[in-house]
Amino acid sequence: MKTTPLHPAHLALGARMGPFAGFEMPIQYTSITSEHLAVRGWVGLFDVSHMGEFWIRGPQALAFLQFATLNDVSRLKVGRAQYSMLPNAQGGVVDDIYLYRTGEEEYLMVVNAANIEKDWAHLQALAEGFRVSLEDASDFFALLAVQGPRAVATLQKLCEVELENRKKNDTFMGRLVGKWVRFARTGYTGEDGYEIFVAPDEVGAVWQALLDAGATPCGLGARDTLRLEAGFPLYGHELTDQTNPLCTPLAWVVKTQKDFYGKGALLEAPCPRRLVGLLVEGGVPREGYRVWQGEREVGVLTSGTHSPVLKKGIAMAYVDSSLATLGTSLEVEIRSRRTEAKVVEMPFIRSSA
Rank of each mutant, 00 (worst) to 15 (best):
T4K: 08
L6A: 02
P8S: 11
A12S: 15
G14Y: 08
G14N: 10
G14D: 11
R16Q: 15
F20A: 13
F20R: 12
G22W: 08
S31V: 07
S34L: 05
E35L: 01
E35I: 02
V43N: 06
V43H: 05
M51T: 01
W55A: 10
A61S: 15
A63F: 00
A68K: 04
S74K: 05
K77Y: 05
V78N: 03
Q82M: 14
M85G: 08
L86T: 08
A89E: 14
A89D: 12
A89L: 12
Y98A: 14
T102M: 15
G103Y: 07
E105F: 10
E105P: 01
L108V: 05
N115V: 10
I116H: 07
K118L: 14
H122L: 09
H122W: 15
A125R: 14
E135W: 08
S138R: 03
L144T: 02
P149E: 11
E160D: 14
L163T: 06
L163E: 04
K167S: 14
G174E: 06
A184C: 12
A184V: 08
R185K: 15
G190R: 03
D192Y: 07
Y194A: 03
E195H: 09
I196T: 04
I196V: 12
F197E: 13
A199C: 03
D201P: 01
V206T: 06
G219V: 08
L228W: 10
G231V: 00
G236S: 08
G236C: 00
H237G: 04
P245A: 05
Q257E: 15
Q257M: 04
R273D: 13
R273G: 02
G277L: 12
L279Y: 03
L279K: 13
E281G: 01
R286D: 00
Q293K: 14
R296T: 14
P308S: 07
P308N: 12
V309R: 09
V309F: 10
K311W: 05
D320T: 03
S321Q: 12
S322K: 13
S322D: 14
L323H: 02
T325P: 00
G327H: 07
S329T: 09
E333G: 03
R337E: 13
V344H: 06
E345C: 09
F348T: 05
I349K: 04
